[in-house]
Computed example of a mutant assay.
Amino acid sequence: MASTTSKEIYILGVTRQGKAFRPSDWAERLAGVMSQFRPGGEQRGSHLSYSPWCVPSAVGQTKCVIVHPDLRDYNVMAWDFCMNFAKDNDLQTSEGHPGTPPR
Rank of each mutant, 00 (worst) to 15 (best):
F21A: 10
V14R: 15
P69S: 13
F85T: 09
Q92D: 00
P102V: 15
E42I: 12
G32M: 07
F81S: 08
M34F: 01
E42Y: 10
A78S: 09
P101G: 04
L71H: 01
R72I: 04
R72V: 00
P39W: 00
R16N: 15
S3W: 02
R16P: 05
P52W: 12
I66N: 00
V65C: 07
R44L: 15
S6N: 06
T4G: 10
V33I: 11
N75R: 00
V59D: 02
T62L: 02
I9P: 05
M1R: 11
V65E: 03
V14N: 07
M1V: 12
V33G: 04
P101D: 04
G99C: 00
Q92F: 00
F37W: 09
K87Q: 15
S6A: 13
V33A: 13
F85S: 11
T100K: 15
I9R: 06
Y74F: 10
T93C: 08
T5A: 12
M83G: 02
Q61N: 11
P69D: 13
T93M: 15
Q92I: 14
D80K: 08
V55T: 08
D70W: 06
G13C: 08
W53N: 06
M83V: 14
Y10L: 07
T15Y: 05
I66P: 02
A20E: 11
G96N: 02
N89E: 06
H97Y: 12
W26R: 03
H97I: 02
L48V: 02
M34D: 01
D90L: 08
C82D: 02
T4Q: 14
V65Q: 04
F81T: 10
Q36N: 11
H68K: 06
T5N: 15
P56V: 09
T93W: 01
R22P: 01
L91I: 05
S3T: 08
L30Y: 05
K87R: 15
Y74T: 15
A78T: 09
S3K: 13
S49W: 12
Y50F: 15
D90E: 14
A58Q: 14
L30Q: 07
L48I: 05
R103G: 13
S6L: 10
Y74N: 07
I66H: 03
W26Y: 00
N89D: 01
